[in-house]
């Protein structure tokens, strides 16, 4: 193996440790989609504008088309497939369903993962902050209105969940 062209990498993907040999030029989006068959993450533009490929690397939202798989060696990756716990949907997923926050669903994973990161750091955003956080995700179906309603409500649901977790800890 020419280490300059192929590399062994070890990543934790949605909590599972994965070891793979990859081409160094393989993007992390293609890696999770075509090598790990986690196809919930989508590619919309491959030049870093549409946000459909947003995933979390070490808990931070990144564009999966602008990062190489080899750069995630040793990192923790989270994709949309990690959100629901068994039959229990993530509060953001529930909010998107209840508010009709998706139509074709192609951009949705990127939006959800963006929100997971953003809301973890900004649990009570102003409306303008929430919009700014979502400004890097293109959607052609919804006109964004219901995405925004869903995101707002999702933030609220996450806060409630956080509180009830606190109650349980007490």
């Amino acid at each position: 193996m020419d280490k300059r062209r192929r590399r062994q990498i070890q990543v934790t993907v949605n909590g599972q440790s994965v070891r793979r040999e990859v081409d160094v030029r393989l993007t992390v989006a293609d890696f999770i989609r075509h090598e790990l068959f986690l196809t919930g993450t989508h590619l919309g533009c491959e030049h870093g504008v549409c946000g459909a490929c947003t995933i979390l690397v070490d808990d931070r939202a990144v564009r999966g088309c602008l990062m190489l798989a080899v750069q995630t060696d040793g990192a923790e990756i989270r994709t949309v497939e990690s959100l629901a716990q068994g039959d229990t949907a993530h509060p953001l997923q529930e909010a998107f369903q209840d508010h009709h926050g998706l139509q074709c669903g192609y951009c949705t994973a990127g939006i959800l993962m963006t929100l997971v990161d953003f809301l973890a750091n900004n649990p009570t955003p102003e409306e303008s902050e929430l919009k700014n956080a979502l400004s890097g995700n293109l959607c052609r179906c919804t006109g964004y209105q219901n995405i925004f309603s869903a995101a707002k409500d999702g933030a609220e649901r996450l806060r409630i969940e956080e509180h009830s977790d606190d109650d349980i800890r007490r």
Partner: peptide
């Protein structure tokens, strides 16, 4: 500058 996802990197 850019968006949340691009500022991360």
């Amino acid at each position: 500058v850019g968006h949340l996802q691009t500022r991360t990197r």
